[in-house]
Design a protein around this nucleic acid. Structure first.
Length: 200
DNA sequence: TCTTCGATTGTCT
DNA sequence: GACAATCGAAGAA
């Protein structure tokens, strides 16, 4: 599984294309000898300084610097005083764009996820951007790490193929402050993932 | 330095 | 459906 890590070129594509293509791919976090991860089932695209919903809307800062670097790296930031959110940097180096991973279907390390999300129903373990980082134990210490490295601790690999007809494009969540036309851009991608189709 | 607020979640009504 | 939790980044002063 780890030998099917996605290429740097995959992440160099336009951010909206990457966001759509990431549906069905597999996010993996290696913790010691264990792998924790799952199939990505929801993403959102944030596209450059002109996108008023993107963190880069006010230019480069210490916080969003990773987005200005090369594609295929993790941009992980802290928000609401308690939540970590995971993004993948995309596009050309110097152009700030990233895909937010909003939801996934757990496939590996279920014992660890159960412990990290103790007392919560399995269906709710990873169905939110801050929930999945908590479930997979992803935090700011992994900010800027390379998602294309087979030897990395956090990476994205080939997963399952999901037909286009099962992927929906809808407006992004929680960005009312951005104003139009950004609120209405259909840059959120979702899919239903059936556990019977998951490729180990 | 001071103030505002967020790419959210869980709990309570 | 409403709202508190909780803190660092970013912008204003």
């Amino acid at each position: 599984m780890k030998n099917k890590t996605l290429s740097r070129d995959f992440f160099r594509q336009p951010v909206v294309d990457v966001a759509r293509s990431l549906i069905g791919k597999q996010l993996i976090h290696q913790i010691g000898e264990n792998w924790v991860g799952g199939i990505i089932s929801e993403t959102e695209a944030y596209d450059g300084e002109q996108d008023q919903a993107c963190h880069a809307r006010r230019g480069k800062t210490k916080r969003n610097a990773v987005m200005y670097g090369p594609a295929g790296y993790a941009y992980i930031y802290f928000t609401y005083g308690m939540h970590w959110l995971l993004n993948c940097v995309t596009g050309a180096e110097g152009y700030p764009a990233a895909v937010l991973i909003r939801s996934l279907h757990p496939t590996h390390g279920l014992e660890i996820i159960t412990k990290n999300r103790e007392g919560i129903k399995p269906a709710l373990w990873c169905n939110g951007p801050a929930k999945l980082t908590r479930a997979l134990a992803i935090d700011g210490s992994l900010n800027g790490c390379d998602l294309c490295q087979k030897s990395g601790t956090l990476l994205i690999s080939e997963g399952i193929t999901i037909p286009d007809k099962f992927i929906q494009a809808t407006p992004r969540i929680g960005i009312a402050y951005a104003g139009e036309p950004w609120i209405s851009k259909p840059w959120r991608f979702t899919a239903q993932v059936s556990s019977s189709k998951i490729d180990e």
